[in-house]
């Protein structure tokens, strides 16, 4: 029976009373977490279950989803070479984006974390400024910049070069993705390096490590949680990216994101789209689990 501990009579503590108090504390914790939990269950978990159920449903000849004749056909179709090709292309693109972001962000995050006072906060704000304008608008801006008669192309021609022909290619998508997800790499790296105890690096230098060796053996391993977090934050959204490839990519370079969308819309094959979504989801989940397992072992 719940006890009103605030207004209960003050008496000597017994094991029962102590247990009641702990239960009351746990209930209070749940109550505080419930708005966010409720929101997530309603708008994330429930739709996910619907998608999961749909992935076993049948598609009628007119493209309607029939909740009968449950089968694994949609999952069998995942082994279609076309799906494999799209998946590999997406994985390569997401991997490349992640690596470029990592290589570009680490020195910046390192620089930021080793500044003091106002410089550091100014740099942080600069990294976050792109978030102040709409992602879609910023992606369209790239369309202008990279276009055949865009400023970069004109500059190239003025210098006697060729006009740019990268819009609607994977290169354009890569540029757009790196641009869009760079801050998601910089911030976790910064957070990891900002916590770094620099006397460890001094100890490394004291123990005959060159600057590079001290970085390789001390700074990098210790900042690994930041590298892992940043890579997950970049890799996962880029693997399923839809907006950037849709705006900057071409028709020939279908990626997982637009392939799934096309199953739900143009192809009217909701079961297959659902199965695709779930396949991508489980790959991401698997990657995350592996990452955290190895990352946790390191520290």
């Amino acid at each position: 029976m719940p006890v009103d501990l605030e207004n209960a009579p003050v008496e000597a503590v017994t094991p029962e009373l102590e247990r009641d108090s702990e239960k009351a504390n746990a209930r209070r914790g749940m109550l505080i977490a419930s708005p966010a939990a409720f929101y997530l269950i309603l708008f994330f978990a429930v739709p996910l279950v619907i998608v999961f159920v749909y992935s076993f449903a049948t598609r009628s000849s007119t493209g309607l989803t029939l909740l009968e004749g449950w089968n694994l056909d949609s999952y069998r179709r995942l082994w279609d070479p076309l799906v494999g090709e799209i998946a590999v292309r997406s994985l390569v693109l997401a991997g490349t984006t992640t690596i470029i972001c990592l290589v570009a962000s680490y020195p910046l995050a390192y620089y930021m974390a080793t500044r003091v006072g106002r410089t550091r906060y100014l740099l942080l704000v600069l990294v976050m400024i792109p978030f102040w304008s709409n992602f879609l608008v910023r992606t369209y801006a790239w369309r202008v910049l990279l276009g055949t008669d865009g400023p970069l192309s004109q500059l190239s021609q003025a210098l006697g070069g060729e006009p740019f022909r990268i819009l609607f290619t994977n290169t354009a998508v890569l540029i757009g993705l790196v641009y869009g997800f760079l801050p998601f790499m910089v911030l976790p790296l910064y957070a990891a390096l900002e916590r770094m105890d620099w006397s460890l690096v001094e100890a490394g230098r004291d123990l005959y490590a060159s600057g590079w060796k001290a970085f390789r053996r001390i700074t990098l391993p210790i900042s690994m949680p930041g590298v892992v977090a940043g890579s997950i934050l970049v890799f996962i959204p880029t693997l399923g990216a839809y907006v950037t490839p849709a705006i900057l990519g071409g028709a020939k370079t279908t990626l997982l994101g637009d392939y799934i969308v096309s199953q739900f819309l143009a192809a009217r094959n909701q079961p297959f789209g659902s199965a695709l979504s779930f396949a991508v989801l489980s790959v991401m989940l698997g990657a995350t689990v592996i990452y955290f397992r190895t990352g946790a072992k390191n520290l």
Binding site: G204, I222, L299
Partner: peptide, 12 residues
């Protein structure tokens, strides 16, 4: 060689 104030042992 130095013995640091906080020891600066490599945690990893």
């Amino acid at each position: 060689n130095t013995v640091f104030q906080s020891y600066a042992l490599f945690p990893h």
